[in-house]
Nucleic acid binder design. Structure first.
Length: 804
RNA sequence: GCCCAGAUGGCGGAAUCGGUAGACGCGUCGGACUCAAAAUCCGAUGGUAGCGAUACUGUGAGGGUUCAAGUCCCUCUCUGGGCACCA
């Protein structure tokens, strides 16, 4: 049977709703602030899934503990509501995606409230709201004014059959996901944000934030700073030079050819008549390939000779020029010097095309390239030198010859910022017929998305907004007819600054009031999936740093501490999805076991950052435990044992549980904290007397994870008001010391006995312990007749006896 | 292919400044209560051998370092996340 979760949970949810219990007093600077944030959800039609519940429960529990600890907590929620599914729904049903989006949001809100999350509902934001995207557009204009937003031709996935541009996700093996039509990569004029201007700042900032090491590494690798050398190759019979970036200038004497990206601007000029046809055909093939395919080292290296020759600047050697798809136009200078003996890709390419190979570092190159560093050979003046020394010698020589320079290069590319879609923020730019661009004046923001007749793609590659009503599309400024930009922003835009809007969500004159932004930023704890380790988290950092430079944000990083939550997989271990039929809806679980049982299960089942399969019996087990707790507060048998006195035998576990939970919750290790609570509850069941002090603390320690039940237990103890108003329980350290410790006694690494001994024993006592250990019968069985080589004592842990 | 993680009983996991592997829970088995069942309470539970004390074995695979390795080093396998227009 168990407690009536439905009645209890509804009762307290009503109370919280009516009293607006979790509204943040944003101007109360008297208490220390604590800003806990979830990555806001995309409001899909299927509603919240149990994966959301995990991360949201973790932040909710942390928020609740922090409130009880005396912090002024900001814990908001919103919706990342622009996106592809809404647009596709709109196209299919010829309905404004805003309607669909709002329906989904209503459903999300209902679910979030039913889970008892302590969000401040007065601060809800959605990225599709004009009062919100007014500021997204404002930030874009600022970037534009600072020269950080520019137009350029970029390759996009163009599907001629569908007459539309596709997202990478919509392209599978070079074919469109819908219909399986061929997709080609075609250059189109796009808005691009100059994130590369912030490469160094984004890199430096990583040292100042408390993020998982793996995420820091991924961001660092993504930015991809490398120090190297630019070598300038002149071209035989041409004026042009080819610039090549390399981190292995030391191998320049081994360069036997040069490879340009097929899109390299010089290809056309340097291709000879004879090679023209082959080059064009090759370029056409490459156009259908993604970068991923092109850089896959396991695939065959293809390419063609373009007919011209370059001159190796270090030795004057004449080397052929190729184009090859494994060279990307977007990295370095879009050209590489090929050193077959010391780069595997060049090795494969050279073998295939029968090109010359010169070994310049000692090592085995008979079956594969030797990519290590080593002693140089066949390299004129650097023979005998080692890697770094050789790089410097070569680069210095190139500089002297005016054929090179040191250069720092980044893998990071500028951010392709426009989309050929309807359901996104309009880009506030106007164009004239000469190709000039003009910003929409700030006072005209927000530039609202126009209502449209249909949302279908135009078929010719122009964005849907080019079909917008003429009244929207054309503007007269000073007698000049200007046309609006019809591309929209990517979904990343709205999510790059939303954390700041929660602080002052209704401000019509600014992103937020300066004093409030200064006080509340950065976010103290941010929780979201590891799949955002690079893109979202890098884009948001970029905008934050830009707005910092604009004087809007005082802090230089948006998210001080970051945790990732893992995926919750289906019971079959596969990713949950509608099509796999393994998805679990929180609604169903709540109906059967209650929100608290769901929350408890998700926090108890394992570390928040780990992916793990859903266990259908899990919430049931959680409910069983919660019933067990409830009985201590509600059944006469147990109530008869309540006492105002302390029980000495329970003091240690009481204090240890407070300590363990407080520490574990702080770092989101709820599973181990809750395990300790279970141990305490098991002890309470065995106890003769139940100190009310412990029952209160137990309710408090549970309340962050199971807030409805926590509040109910608090009330059953005859308390009035909200449980979080009672300060978080404190640890009496004295009760934790003077506990004896158990030493394990090992002989040759195997445990043979254990001895209880005093904690933190002095040197003399340690000697006593050694003798005690050696005297143990169980130990003697293994030491008898052998020589004792040494005895190692690790304080409070182990006595290790080594015998021969 | 590149970058980043992970692999521990029947299951989820605990233990990582190297120090008693399997905390806690699920499941299973046994007991109490009950006419019976459910619920509840109590207990057992990595594997092998043994009535038992106990012994051996055991943290994806193979090597190595160490008095001591789930933890450190090398090689490998598999799984997951990301790869710039999914969010």
């Amino acid at each position: 049977m168990g407690y009536d979760f439905e009645a209890i949970e509804r009762k307290w949810e009503k109370e919280w709703e009516e009293n607006d219990t979790y509204a943040t007093n944003i101007r109360d600077f008297s208490k220390p602030k604590f800003y806990v944030l979830d990555m806001f959800p995309y409001p899909s039609a299927v509603g919240l899934h149990v994966g959301h519940v995990e991360g949201y429960t973790a932040t909710d529990a942390l928020s609740r503990m922090k409130r009880a600890q005396g912090y002024n907590v900001l814990h908001p929620i919103g919706y990342d509501a622009f996106g592809l599914p809404a647009e596709q729904f709109a196209i299919k049903n010829n309905q404004n995606p805003a309607i669909y989006t709002d329906q989904n949001i209503d459903n999300f809100r209902r679910q979030l409230k039913r889970l008892g999350f302590s969000y401040d509902w007065n601060r809800e934001v959605k990225t599709t709201d004009p009062s919100y995207y007014k500021w997204t557009q404002d930030i874009f204009l600022r970037l534009y004014e600072k020269g950080l937003a520019y137009e350029d031709y970029r390759l996009v996935n163009w599907c001629p059959a569908l007459g539309t541009v596709l997202a990478n996700e919509e392209v599978i093996d070079g074919k469109s996901e819908r219909g399986g039509f061929p997709v080609e990569r075609r250059p189109m004029k796009q808005w691009v944000l100059k994130i590369t201007a912030y490469a160094e700042k984004l890199l430096d900032g990583l040292n100042t934030i408390d993020w998982p090491a793996s995420t820091l590494t991924m961001q660092k690798n993504w930015i991809g700073k490398s120090k190297g050398t630019v070598c300038i190759f002149s071209v035989v019979d041409h004026e042009e030079n080819i610039e090549v970036f390399t981190t292995r200038a030391d191998t320049l004497f081994g360069c036997t050819y040069v490879v340009l990206a097929p899109e390299h601007p010089l290809v056309k000029k340097l291709t000879t008549k004879e090679q023209e046809k082959a080059v064009e055909e090759y370029q056409k093939i490459v156009a259908s390939k993604s970068d991923l395919d092109r850089t896959d080292a396991s695939k065959e290296k293809t390419g063609v000779f373009i007919g011209s020759y370059a001159i190796n600047p270090i030795n004057g050697k004449k080397v052929p020029i190729y184009i090859g798809d494994y060279v990307l136009a977007t990295y370095g200078s879009g050209a590489v010097m090929a050193v077959p003996c010391h780069d595997q890709r060049d090795y494969d390419f050279a073998k295939k095309h029968g090109l010359e190979m010169i070994q310049v570092i000692e090592g085995d190159v008979s079956t594969a390239a030797f990519e290590e560093v080593g002693v140089h050979i066949n390299s004129s003046f650097i023979n005998g030198m080692h890697n770094e020394e050789a790089k410097k010698a070569i680069t210095d020589k190139l500089i002297e010859l005016n054929k090179g320079r040191y250069q720092i290069n980044y893998k990071l590319r500028d951010w392709l910022f426009s989309r050929q879609r309807y359901w996104g923020e309009p880009i506030p730019i106007l164009h004239d017929e000469e190709g000039n661009t003009y910003p929409v004046p700030y006072q005209d923001l927000p530039l609202k998305l126009p209502e449209m007749e249909d949302y279908k793609p135009t078929g010719d590659g122009r964005p849907p907004l080019s079909k917008a009503p003429k009244a929207w599309l054309y503007v007269n400024v000073d007698g000049k007819k200007l046309e609006r930009e019809t591309n929209t922003m990517p979904q990343w835009a709205g999510s790059s600054w939303y954390y700041a809007r929660y602080i002052d969500p209704h401000n019509e004159n600014a992103i937020g009031e300066k004093e409030l932004l200064d006080h509340w930023l950065p976010v103290d704890v941010y929780v979201g999936g590891a799949e955002h380790a690079v893109l979202h988290l890098l884009y948001a950092r970029f905008w934050h740093k830009f707005l910092h430079d604009e004087g809007i944000f005082k802090s230089s990083e948006p998210f001080q501490k970051l945790f990732h939550q893992g995926l919750i997989l289906g019971a079959d271990g596969q990713k949950m999805s509608k099509s796999a039929g393994n998805a679990v809806s929180p609604d169903d679980v709540i109906k059967e076991y209650g929100a608290d049982a769901l929350r408890f299960y998700e926090m108890f089942k394992g570390p928040v950052d780990q992916s793990m399969p859903w266990s259908p019996d899990g919430p049931k087990g959680a409910k069983t435990f919660l019933d067990r707790v409830y009985r201590l507060y509600s059944e006469d048998t147990y109530k008869a044992k309540w006492t105002d006195e302390d029980v000495k035998e329970l003091e240690y576990i009481y204090n240890y549980t407070i300590k363990k939970c407080t520490e574990d919750y702080e770092i989101l290790h709820f599973n181990t904290g809750l395990a300790q609570i279970m141990i305490l509850v098991n002890e309470l069941y065995k106890a003769e007397k139940l100190p009310k002090k412990i029952l209160l603390a137990l309710a408090q320690l549970l309340a962050p994870v199971v807030p409805h039940l926590g509040q109910e237990l608090y009330t059953l103890l005859n308390n009035k008001g909200m449980i979080e108003e009672t300060p978080w329980p404190k640890v009496n350290e004295a009760a934790l010391s003077n506990q004896p410790v158990t030493y394990a006694i090992q002989v040759n690494g195997k445990v043979r006995d254990t001895i209880d001994f005093e904690k933190d024993a002095s040197e003399d006592k340690i000697e006593e312990l050694k003798q005690l250990a050696l005297a143990s019968e169980k130990v003697k069985n293994f030491t008898e007749g052998k020589t004792i080589v040494k005895v190692i004592v690790v304080k409070n842990k182990i006595v290790s006896i080594v015998v021969k």
